[in-house]
Amino acid sequence: MTNNGTRWALLGVTAATAVGVGRAVARRRHRHQPQRQDGWYVVRRAVTVDRPRDEVIGFWADRERRDRALAGWATLRQLDERRWRCVARDRAAGETQWQAEITVEEAGTLHWRVEDGPMPQLGRIELAEAPQGRGTEIRAEMRYRSGPLRRLVGLVGGDEPDLALRDALRRAKALVECGQVLDTRDDPSGRSRAQEKRTDRMRETLMTGGRA
């Protein structure tokens, strides 16, 4: 009788624990999943730049400053009055390149479409005034087609569109605020070439994604 009681009690505790853990994992997973709409993953990311809206727009309109700032990782070519082609080179993702067509809808609003990337992607950026004179919020919404497995592989490999969006926003903020994106990859060290390669891989992990 006691044995049966113990068994039932253990079974009950185990079941309750399993249900609790399962629900917690599911909730956490749900919280960390991007929204899905009509087969698209939808992510929204934003960053605050400590400059007025006009200055943020002006930075990208000033060809000399922009090209100097983008040198080494992207080129922008104007196609007509509203459309631009961007070719970006991602050193962190093994020198991969992607091309996007960017269309300016109006001052402070644009959308983009990646044509030749590994997965269809489109997005939209809006600039909004930040409260308390804190500058400008760059708000991005991006949609991309992917599957859960592909997304997981991308997250582990560091080449998932959401991570790239967060990198791009952080870079844009740094370029407008201080004219450069810092990089310590070529700082001196006492490492062998093989050790440096391993360290570069760790650097890439520490440079990719995070908060926008």
């Binding site: 740094a174 605020e177 201080c178 520490l206 995070g210 908060r211």
Partner: peptide, 18 residues
């Protein structure tokens, strides 16, 4: 400073912000 840590992801996870 918002821009001087080029590898911010670790401390963002540890402290919320780099």
């Amino acid at each position: 400073c918002d821009n001087s840590n080029p590898q911010p992801v670790f401390t963002e996870k540890l402290w919320g912000h780099a």
